[in-house]
């Protein structure tokens, strides 16, 4: 009962914070934001959820172990770095689509890289925090 306010808030805050983290991720190429801070915000969202509802329900919500975000993120980042090789350009050259997407804006390999960073940061932060809070 003590947690009622926290729980109610967390219920609303989780999607909002996640949306905010995505927002930061997407605008990150030209404006303040980016994959790193986006990933941390997302991690905070889940940690908040864990405080309110307990670690088990957060794990249930996530469905996968947070550690699995890391290899996916790293793979995406490496993939985005190697992508230019297919076109005969040096590694890590920025590639951009000609037409901007609605809402998202211009999409390029840099965004893919940022998504990778986002996932790695999220995975690392959640793994550390979950592991520690479980062992306490």
């Amino acid at each position: 009962m003590k947690l009622l306010i926290l729980r109610t808030t967390a219920n609303f805050l989780l999607p909002l914070l996640l949306l905010f983290s995505l927002f930061l991720l997407l605008r990150g190429h030209y404006l303040p934001g980016g994959g790193f801070v986006g990933g941390i915000i997302a991690a905070i969202a889940f940690v908040l959820h864990a405080f309110a509802f307990g670690l088990r329900s957060t794990r249930k919500l996530l469905r996968v172990h947070p550690i699995s975000f890391m290899p996916v993120g790293l793979g995406l980042a490496v993939f985005s770095a190697l992508l230019p090789l297919l076109k005969g350009l040096p590694v890590m050259t920025g590639l951009w689509l000609d037409e901007p997407f609605p809402v998202v804006g211009l999409v390029g390999s840099a965004l893919l890289f940022d998504v990778g960073v986002y996932l790695v940061v999220l995975g690392v932060a959640l793994t550390i925090i979950f592991t520690i809070s479980e062992s306490v």
């Binding site: 801070v37 905070i44 932060a125 306490v136």
Partner: peptide, 20 residues
């Protein structure tokens, strides 16, 4: 940009500290 990152990191760090 820096402020935002620092803010988020700091929040996480404090949480970590409380946990350990």
């Amino acid at each position: 940009d820096l402020a935002m990152t620092q803010f988020a990191i700091d929040t996480l760090t404090v949480i970590l500290f409380v946990l350990v």
